[in-house]
């Protein structure tokens, strides 16, 4: 498996560290002011964020860290059955837009 890092180009997967499901959003920290129902909803949100995973057999969006290269965090869209990589972008949207502007053909099939 090779990942096409937007800065560094195609590199072997052992230069990268897997960072897990990129589909999760960190919930707001509990503020202690919530009523009982709201507090329960906050606990559910944290349970979902920390522990529950869709774990698809197929396309997944996940974080990878290019620890052995440029040090950027990437979002990789990958097939968990075939290991095919569909798309790699920088996790920082602003930096990703800058890379796209530099190389508009990137990630086109």
């Amino acid at each position: 498996m090779r990942l096409d890092c937007p800065w560094c180009g195609p590199r072997p997967v052992d230069e990268f560290v897997h960072g897990g499901d990129a589909g999760k959003r960190r919930p707001m920290a509990p503020d202690g002011q919530a009523g009982a129902d709201e507090a329960r909803a906050q606990r559910r949100a944290w349970l979902d964020y920390v522990y529950r995973r869709n774990n698809p057999a197929g396309r997944i969006a996940e974080f990878w860290h290019h620890s052995g290269g440029c040090g950027c965090w990437l979002v990789v869209e990958r097939d968990t059955v075939s290991h095919e990589i569909a798309r790699v972008r920088l996790a920082d949207p602003e930096a990703d837009r800058a890379v796209q502007a530099r190389d508009p053909g990137r990630n086109e099939p």
């Binding site: 072997p12 057999a57 996940e62 990958r78 968990t80 059955v81 290991h83």
Partner: peptide
């Protein structure tokens, strides 16, 4: 070290 259902792994 990454999610997979492929029943085969990578060379590293």
């Amino acid at each position: 070290g990454y999610n997979s259902y492929a029943q085969r792994g990578n060379l590293h």
